Computed example of a mutant assay.
Amino acid sequence: MKRYFTLFVALFLIGNVFAQSGYRIGAKVENFTLKDAQNQAVELSNFKDAPLLAVVFTSVSCPYAKLYETRLQQLSQAYTGKGVRFVYVNTTIGLEEGSQTDKAQPDRPSAQTFPYLIDEGQQLSKQFGATKAPEVFVLQNSPDGFYLRYKGAIDDNPQAGNYVKQRYLANALDALLAGRSVAEAERRATGCLIKKF
C-alpha cells in the first residue's frame, strides 16, 4: 500500500511539472530569435513598437490551423490599425513524418498569406509551453519588456467560424487595448497536438 502511495505521489509531481511548463499569465517573456521562410532572423525585440503582440503557434500541416486561417487574417486586419502585431510560428505537429520541422514553403498559399517563423527544434513552443496548433499567446509591451496576458484558444468553434459564440482572443485584445485586465486569461486551445522531441 505504501509503495502505491509513493508511486501515486511521484506521478502527481511529474504531471505537475509538465503541466506547469512554459510561461504563466503575468510572466515576463524572454527575448527569442527565430528565422522566417527567407532564413532571416526575427527577434521578439523587433516588435518593441507594438503595444500588443499575438504569438500564434500553428502548423501548415494542421487541419485545425487551416480552418482558422481566414479568421486570423480578419483579426490581424481588424487590430493592426490599433497597434496589435501578429506573429505566426510554424511548429511540428503529430501528423508529420520524417523531419523534425515542417518548414513553410514560400510557394504555398498559406505561407504567402501568413509570414511564418520556423520553430526549429521546437525551441519556442517549449519556451512558451504551447501544446496545440493553433494556440495563441498575447504579450503586452511595457518599458521593461513583454508580459504574457492571455494564452489559449482563438474562439469556441474551431470547425465553423459562423457559429462562434465566444471570441476569446478578440475579447483579450479589446480588454488590454482599453487598459483593463483580461477577464478570462487562459482558455484551453483545441487543435493538433504539438509533437515533442
Rank of each mutant, 00 (worst) to 15 (best):
F5G: 05
L7G: 01
V9F: 14
L11Y: 10
L11C: 15
F12Y: 15
F12E: 03
F12P: 08
L13E: 02
N16D: 01
F18Q: 10
F18C: 01
A19I: 07
Q20W: 13
S21P: 00
G22L: 03
Y23V: 00
R24L: 14
R24Q: 15
I25Y: 08
A27M: 06
K28N: 09
V29S: 01
V29A: 12
N31C: 00
T33K: 14
T33Y: 02
T33I: 04
L34V: 06
L34A: 03
D36C: 08
D36M: 00
N39F: 11
N39W: 11
A41S: 11
A41P: 09
V42H: 12
V42R: 14
E43L: 03
L44H: 08
S45H: 06
S45Y: 04
S45Q: 09
S45T: 07
S45E: 04
N46F: 11
K48D: 02
K48R: 13
K48V: 01
D49E: 12
A50V: 00
A50N: 13
P51D: 01
P51W: 01
P51H: 03
L53W: 08
A54N: 08
A54I: 03
V55I: 09
T58P: 01
S59M: 03
V60P: 05
V60Q: 11
S61Y: 12
Y64V: 08
Y64S: 07
Y64T: 08
A65N: 09
K66R: 12
K66C: 01
K66P: 02
K66F: 11
L67I: 02
Y68F: 15
Y68L: 04
T70S: 12
R71Q: 10
R71M: 01
Q74C: 02
Q74N: 13
Q74E: 10
L75M: 06
L75V: 06
L75Q: 03
S76G: 10
S76D: 04
Y79D: 01
G81R: 11
G81M: 05
K82Q: 12
G83C: 08
F86D: 01
V87G: 11
Y88L: 02
V89C: 01
V89G: 05
N90M: 03
N90L: 05
T91S: 14
T91E: 06
T92Y: 13
I93Q: 06
G94W: 13
L95M: 08
E96P: 01
S99F: 10
S99H: 13
S99Q: 12
S99T: 05
Q100T: 03
Q100I: 02
T101Q: 10
T101Y: 11
D102Y: 13
D102R: 15
P106C: 09
D107H: 15
R108I: 00
P109Y: 11
P115A: 05
P115L: 09
Y116W: 09
L117W: 06
D119P: 02
D119I: 07
Q123E: 11
Q123D: 10
L124H: 04
S125I: 00
K126M: 08
Q127C: 05
F128W: 13
F128P: 07
F128I: 04
A130L: 07
T131W: 12
K132D: 03
K132F: 10
A133S: 06
V136T: 14
V136C: 11
F137N: 04
F137P: 00
L139W: 08
L139N: 05
